[in-house]
């Protein structure tokens, strides 16, 4: 299995590091050819406006939309969540949102950098909290009933799944905790969803 990390801009190197720690071969994706060769894709945190423009510049917007429509398993964190959402409230004009997960997000909904924070996240079915790091993070303002909300913080969803799309408003790549990545790469998405319990 080949896991790609969208490497246009942002924390793609940190995602690669986590995947390598898990013994998974991760490849950087910057071109349509590279996208065509991966079995799973991670869309990292970064600036969603910049990543959105670079998707156009590198000719990736249509191929990515096609692969998502075909059910490519994808993990999107922070900016990745914004790109995968169905709606960006008060979004940047022309910003891509691919609608792979039926949520509405507001960019920088948790505030500017002074309000960036870390907080323990209680994940459904897990024995211990996940260390959530929120950097100028987007808020998920609403989620359709078709979306599994796996964790919430102060009433807002922060970790969700729909089909083979997993999104978080925080940055698992910044944590010394590989459980979300491990679940994403180990799950057999073709046979339906099995929630990972967070321990061996």
């Amino acid at each position: 299995m080949k896991v790609g990390v969208l490497a246009l801009q942002g924390a793609f190197g940190l995602h690669e590091r986590v995947l390598n720690r898990l013994g998974v071969a991760a490849v950087q994706v910057r071109t349509p050819q590279e996208l065509a060769e991966v079995d799973r894709l991670v869309i990292p945190g970064g600036e969603s406006t910049a990543i959105s423009k670079l998707l156009d510049a590198n000719g990736l917007a249509d191929p990515l939309a096609d692969r998502l429509a075909d059910g490519l398993p994808v993990l999107g964190t922070c900016a990745g969540l914004i790109l995968l959402a169905a709606e960006v409230v008060d979004g940047y004009p022309g910003q891509h949102c691919f609608g792979a997960v039926d949520v509405a997000v507001r960019r920088n909904g948790y505030g500017r950098q002074s309000e960036s924070f870390s907080a323990p996240i209680e994940v459904e079915g897990w024995e211990s909290d996940f260390p959530g790091v929120f950097i100028r993070a987007p808020v998920i303002e609403s989620a359709s009933p078709d979306v599994d909300v796996l964790a919430e913080l102060d009433g807002a969803p922060v970790l969700c799944r729909q089909g083979s799309t997993v999104v978080s408003s925080f940055h698992p790549e910044l944590a010394e905790d590989d459980r979300i990545h491990r679940w994403f790469v180990e799950q057999d998405w073709s046979t339906g969803h099995r929630w990972f319990t967070g321990h061996e």
Partner: peptide
């Protein structure tokens, strides 16, 4: 925290 402060720099990489 140091992680939260460094975190934003990590998000700016490649930009």
């Amino acid at each position: 925290t140091p992680l939260v402060k460094r975190g934003l720099a990590e998000m700016l990489k490649g930009g």
